[in-house]
Design a protein around this nucleic acid. Structure first.
Lengths: 160, 160
DNA sequence: CGGGGTTCTGTTACTATATAACTTCCTGGG
DNA sequence: CCCAGGAAGTTATATAGTAACAGAACCCCG
């Protein structure tokens, strides 16, 4: 197995779901985009664009920064991956393929473990609501929100 | 006047408060650090490190990236400024000097206007609470949280 | 079939953001 | 005086992201 968020079979299922989602949206999950998505999904942690590029080069020797950034932009637009701003890195969207959000952004939050680097995605409606209320209280029309909490995950807390 | 968040008199008051806060913490607000803080405070919008560097060079011709980054690191540690991750830019801490948080991080959120670029800092206890609860629900020990909402400020919404 | 878009990818070059590593300077304590 | 530690200077480099144009593949339409 290639390490990562799940077995090869799970990976395949997620890629197929992505394929289906793109088909529905009328956009193409090309080979390149699929490769980059697979690289993001099989990582245990958020990966930076250049880390992805290095890995991509093993399959596609001519790859250059724009190669990977264009694929990432596409995947972000389709809501298949998210960017972790604090880390300048990318992770697979936890909810992708569950079609309660076919394509495009949904409210989500990241919990970033400072010890093991694992990044947990949650989607807490109370956080979203509190933010929307706080914003509207000052007349601000809220769009997409970046919410990233640094701390210690349950596993690392249990060890020490 | 030098443009920015307030008059020269207000600036002086904020710098003095910063000085006092550093003295209490047993750290030095050196001339360099004070200059960088002044540059951040007098800007209307978040400024990137290199924008600050350009301005700093007028006062300190030999300044290089580490010059400004080191000062920024110090100011961040003292809680005198914040970094806006989405913009890779820095703003003065709205509450600094009010000593309900002498030194070090306090929970805050940014509302970033996509139109005028203005960044409003708020400190909503409900948001902080919702986040803390959501984190603890999955056994995560929450530390500092980055919360940045992109959208449209009241002023820009009123115009169009 | 043959333009002529559009979309995707390749390629080169570059800009922007951030840090490493070593040196120098200054200050305060013995 | 000497030295320990913090701050700043200096050089070089690492990391992140984009601009701009060229080529290829595809599809539609006439």
């Amino acid at each position: 197995m290639a390490a990562g968020q799940g077995s090869a079979a799970v990976m395949e299922r997620r890629l197929s779901a992505a394929e289906a989602q793109c088909a529905r949206a009328g956009v193409q999950l090309t080979e390149l985009r699929r490769q980059v998505l697979a690289l993001v999904l099989e990582a245990e942690q958020p990966l930076g664009a250049y880390a992805l590029l290095d890995r991509l080069k093993t399959q596609r020797p001519g790859a250059a920064p724009p190669t990977v950034y264009r694929a990432l932009d596409f995947l972000l637009e389709q809501g298949l991956i998210h960017k972790v701003e604090r880390l300048n890195a990318f992770v697979g969207c936890a909810g992708a393929g569950h079609d309660h959000h076919a394509g495009h952004q949904h409210a989500h939050q990241f919990l970033i473990c400072r010890q093991c680097g694992q990044t947990i995605e949650i989607s807490d409606p109370m956080v979203a609501r509190a933010l929307a209320e706080a914003a509207s209280r000052v007349g601000f029309q809220a769009g997409h929100a970046v919410v990233e909490v640094e701390g210690r995950c349950a596993t690392c807390a249990a060890v020490a």
